[in-house]
Amino acid sequence: MDVAALQNELKSLIVKELNLEGRDPSSIVDEAPLFGEGLGLDSLDALQLAMSVEERWNVRIPEGPEGRIAFASVAALARWIVEHPAGDGPKAAG
């Protein structure tokens, strides 16, 4: 998978799914924190983003510490998707 393309797609997904109206996806920094500081997203955004990622790539993002690693940044999320092939998520993640 082309990581740069994946990261760009993720940025567009974040802007669209989280209603970041007026935000240019390319302005999101690959390594910038998504939650708290950085983009200022919260736990409700995390749930929405997890659903969108699962719908688009069929990859589940677990709750808890593992999920926090996946959601650290756009780059971390892209890594998670690359390292967890479609349908390979933990079955009881939800």
């Binding site: 799914e17 989280l18 409700l44 955004d45 749930l47 929405q48 659903m51 939800g94």
Partner: peptide
Amino acid sequence: AKGPRMAPPA
């Protein structure tokens, strides 16, 4: 259509 996992939380 898609199941409960695809319910949009937000």
